[in-house]
Design a protein around this nucleic acid. Structure first.
Lengths: 329, 329
DNA sequence: GCGGTTCAGTGAACCGTTTCAGTGAATCGC
DNA sequence: GCGATTCACTGAAACGGTTCACTGAACCGC
């Protein structure tokens, strides 16, 4: 076990400057003391290589400067992109993200959310697996929470960037319908034990309206696992897919290739999310596009404001676009 | 600002059980006290909804249970996959990862590495941007460090999973050479201010040996940015590319498509890393494959052992495979 | 010249654990 | 039956900051 090098403490800086620790603490944060003292303390601190211990500071002040980021499932490439985007945008605001992955599991989401709260993150961004969980109301009581995707039922969030999934689903299903598809396999992400999400419910409603025959299957977002699910769906005779994440659609591409089936002539695929790679496939994946940069910007703006104590709550609704590329026959 | 709900402290549990805080602390960790007391304390803790405050614990004990994960650049899809894989594997070991992104910047890498140390992570996994930085030796003095990719020069690491980049580069260049390519654009990841990495140096050496004419260009790994670099390289007349990351190669696919150039007949692309998406492109990306699952497993095993105080140092060298798919003409 | 402010800084409590040195009682070997 | 161990537990000091209540001096208007 390596020996932690002994670091300078605030008391040593105090001794070196002839001030009290309290004065040093104030000086380093540039409050309550004279300009001259601030300068003197800064110099001494630099000399001693002093830097405030974030743990001790967090214990005493209850703040860490960190923002928690609780992702629904990082197997999904789009969610990966979202997480990376948010982490980078936070960095530009001199904050940094504590990224956690609920892996599509509501129980895990619950544990991790509490862990983040206990870690004293100043605020939390969450892309909920189970937006209806009572957890969120509880959590909003003790720290600012910004949700991405779905609204958190009954919770006093600090901000929301909700996706108009109803519009997204309608866009997708109507497009498939226009192209003459009546029987669809719907591949949606796994969420064991979660009540049906608004988006899923809306899929069924829209299918009824449009007279579609749906076969709903849950699929993990990892390429290998999604390919597996797609394989079975193909073998069951399905030839038209509505995938509730581009990552899942990639599995349909892979499985179709294995079976020697061509897209879009033999197999139709519709994605959801628009990951950058979707435009690179042959044919490109027709999908529902959300403005990921806009989402990142909005969420980060909200969460930073909330962490800074701003209590104005904002709610932004993202509208989807149909990005037609050629995977729908 | 939401009001943090007052949580039970260890003192209240002590009061409730008629024990000292110290005894409770021991009991909850199941050491130094009788079975009966442990049971009593557990019950009381559950009743009061007590859970130890991780921050206070970290301050007192110097340990957090967290593993730091410092990534080279999370713009790279392969590195994203690596990070997610490591995070998930750590979870299976009841530890969790604090993921940070150096964004290809050595200065940022330095800051973040120190921040992780100050955050008292029990150990650190790093995929170094600048493996030659003196930083690493300093860091290894105060906590166990496991490196992935390159060896950390002069640092007493707790473990290393090094990629045999020399072999990988040779594999790639010889393949290109066999197919008759003599003039290559080498697209390597940006690393401002970093001395040339061993792999880069080896590229030049091998090129000399094989009689290749190289044009080395640095490229960011985001699709948009890589596409931009590829565009310029195409316009400069390049038709054969060795990309030092599959993510960069995707940019060449995108730029070629824009220009109406076909792969592999008009343009040759060789990748490096083998991201799952590479097999899905048309044609599939010929690339150098590292066993990502093996890397994840090895790194996690090492880091967990090190965090648990095991001082045996291990060094694993990963051998590359050429994954031929059709993007080399 | 006097009450009232402001300013710069102090001292001590506090945040919630862990851990070290002890302590009294029970148990052990012989 | 007695010194030496072990056992179960206690008290208090860390850990390294922040913050609250306060103080003495300088300055203000009048």
């Amino acid at each position: 076990m390596p020996q932690p090098r002994k670091r300078a403490t605030i008391r040593e800086v105090a001794k070196a400057t002839g001030l009290s620790p309290a004065a040093v603490s104030y000086a380093l944060r540039g409050i309550q003391v004279s300009e001259e003292t601030i300068e003197r303390v800064r110099r001494a601190a630099a000399e001693l290589g002093y830097e405030a211990d974030p743990i001790a500071r967090a214990l005493a002040s209850g703040r860490t400067g960190m923002i928690g980021l609780l992702c629904g499932s990082l197997e999904d490439l789009w969610q990966q992109a979202l997480a990376v985007g948010i982490a980078r945008a936070l960095k530009d605001n001199d904050r940094y993200a504590l990224i956690l992955d609920a892996a599509g599991d509501p129980a895990r989401e619950k544990t991790l959310a509490r862990q983040l709260r206990d870690q004293r993150v100043d605020a939390l961004i969450v892309q909920p697996v189970d937006p209806a969980a009572p957890l969120w109301a509880e959590l909003c009581e003790s720290l600012p929470v910004v949700s991405i995707g779905d609204s958190l039922a009954g919770a006093r969030t600090a901000g929301e960037v909700v996706f108009d999934n109803r519009a997204g689903v309608t866009l997708a299903l109507e497009h498939l319908c226009r192209r003459g598809h009546r029987r669809l396999a719907v591949l949606t992400s796994t969420r064991a034990g979660t009540p049906d999400r608004p988006a899923d419910v809306h899929v069924l409603a829209e299918a009824g309206r449009l007279g579609l025959d749906l076969d709903v299957v849950t699929a993990p977002q990892s390429l290998a696992a999604a390919t597996d699910v797609a394989r079975r769906a193909l073998d069951a005779g399905h030839r038209a897919f509505f995938c509730f994440a581009d990552s899942i659609a990639y599995g349909v591409y892979a499985a179709s290739a294995e079976r020697g089936l061509r897209i879009p002539s033999d197999v139709t695929v519709m994605g959801y999310d628009d990951h950058p790679m979707s435009g690179l496939l042959t044919p490109g994946l027709t999908t529902v596009d959300w403005d990921i940069d806009g989402i990142v910007r909005a969420a980060v703006r909200m969460v930073v404001a909330a962490a800074d104590g701003n209590t104005r709550r904002r709610r932004i609704v993202q509208a989807p676009d149909l990005r037609e590329r050629g995977s729908v026959g």
